[in-house]
Design a binder for these strands. Structure first.
Lengths: 146, 146
DNA sequence: TTCATATATAATAATAACTACTATGTACTA
DNA sequence: TAGTACATAGTAGTTATTATTATATATGAA
């Protein structure tokens, strides 16, 4: 189990060939600490305490560098802004079409697409399942409205 | 097999409770005729011949009405604009991370997520698989560059 | 340790893809 | 064949993101 290991952020950055700056350190640390998904804007606002001079464009630049380097993952799903999360074990997403909340889920095995890939001569890098539906809370809320 | 049946567009619109207007007729017809995916902007430009006075906002309104009614499907995937396609058999998508092209694929069965849904008390409406990778053409193009 | 330089940052402007608004026009129904 | 609820066109506004550029800084070499 590695859920208690505090990763050395500067080390992580160096390992993927990125310069270590206070901005990158703080942003990556924040994404790794809070385990959930967050938008660029949420990250920007969370940083006001630590880095009051942080610029929005630096947030976007940093998120791009980090995700190009594979340290975080960008999720474009549902309405609104892209979300980012720490690139832990591969997982999939359920989005509630009522409240927009995003939930993770894990599968022991991803669907076998080797046949599809062969036929289309497509080289598969990643496979992500997107589920749309209604979350627990909203199912009950819906009932109340009728 | 129903691939040759020309659907009666006004009839389709009425059936889902939408008023029949020349704009809706032309846009839905266009999406059903060309089988692929297209963006709002592509649709807008394709209509210049048939409906020169068509407004961009009408395209967006119409696409929203049609997809709310279940006649077309919106795909938010990859970079850039939402894509729309006629809501045929359920299918999944592969996107090439090099050229951005989107490819459909079909599965006999979608992954069984009943256990996941039960555990999360999530009511699943649809399940869409997104594959990222490199398409046939770009694999060869990549090789040439080295 | 200091310097050189390639890269990062902040601030701002620009863009793309929508969404909101509103006056006018039109499909449907009573 | 109105009347009315809804649709459209045109425009303005918004949101998320990218581009630009002058200044600042991390890192490798001397």
């Amino acid at each position: 189990m590695d859920h208690d290991i505090k990763p050395n952020i500067p080390e992580l950055l160096k390992r993927v060939g990125l310069r270590v700056t206070p901005q990158r350190d703080a942003i990556l640390r924040h994404i790794i600490d809070r385990k959930g998904h967050m938008s660029a804007d949420q990250i920007y606002r969370s940083m006001q305490g630590t880095l009051p001079n942080l610029s929005v464009s630096t947030v976007y630049n940093t998120l791009k560098s980090l995700s190009d380097a594979g340290l975080i993952r960008e999720i474009k799903f549902g309405d609104g802004a892209s979300l980012f999360d720490a690139n832990r074990e591969p997982h999939h997403h359920m989005v509630c079409t009522v409240c927009g909340e995003l939930f993770d889920f894990y599968l022991k095995a991803t669907p076998d697409l080797t046949h599809i890939a062969q036929q289309a001569r497509f080289h598969i890098d990643e496979c992500h399942i997107e589920v749309k539906g209604i979350c627990d809370a909203c199912q009950h809320r819906e009932v109340d409205l009728t």
